[in-house]
């Protein structure tokens, strides 16, 4: 399995790693059993613009790279725009992912959505979009390679 240069770039130099104290929205998706957890922090200004976004991820190279890319794609955009972020947009921005790693991009999309949901809860806005915090992502695994 080989990752694109973009993926390796975001894996080795992940953008926006860290935490935001008093974040306006925090989302955690995935579980340790499956081997990946993403935590997203959003700082949102009065106009609903994401002024800062940080992440922490436990997971494989693709999990780290998709988290990093997702933060880049939503930073500076409004919350409504962030909700439109799809996993395929993340994959595309990374110049593709191996088929068995596509689920990582789904996780990144869900992480952003659940952070926004947390923000909506805080400001008392009804959550008018679908998201799945316990996302039991499909491991669309091709087969088993082993020695």
């Amino acid at each position: 399995m080989k990752y694109s240069e973009k993926v390796m770039d975001h894996f080795t130099n992940p953008r926006n790693v860290g935490e935001i104290e008093n974040a306006d929205g925090v989302g955690v998706v995935g579980n340790a059993k499956c081997g990946d957890i993403m935590k997203m922090y959003l700082k949102i200004d009065d106009n609903g613009v994401i002024v800062d976004c940080k992440f922490k991820t436990f997971g494989c190279g693709a999990a780290i790279a998709t988290s990093s890319m997702a933060t880049e794609l939503v930073k500076g955009h409004t919350v409504e725009e962030a909700l439109k972020l799809t996993n395929s947009a993340v994959v595309e921005a990374l110049d593709g992912l191996p088929a068995i790693k596509v689920h990582c991009s789904v996780l990144a999309e869900e992480a952003i959505k659940s952070a926004v949901a947390d923000y909506y809860k805080k400001i008392g806005k009804p959550i008018d979009f679908d998201y799945d915090p316990d996302h039991d992502h499909d491991h669309d695994h091709g087969g088993e390679d082993e020695e």
């Binding site: 399995m1 894996f11 990946d36 494989c60 190279g61 999990a63 091709g142 088993e144």
Partner: peptide, 28 residues
């Protein structure tokens, strides 16, 4: 931490190793 990301870093340092993580074996 997860094994595959460890392997990727080790590989960049010139070290070839292996892991029992699902993410690297591509098994379920």
């Amino acid at each position: 931490i997860e094994g595959e990301s460890m392997l990727l870093w080790l590989d960049m340092k010139g070290i070839c190793a292996s892991t029992g993580s699902a993410c690297s074996s591509a098994s379920l």
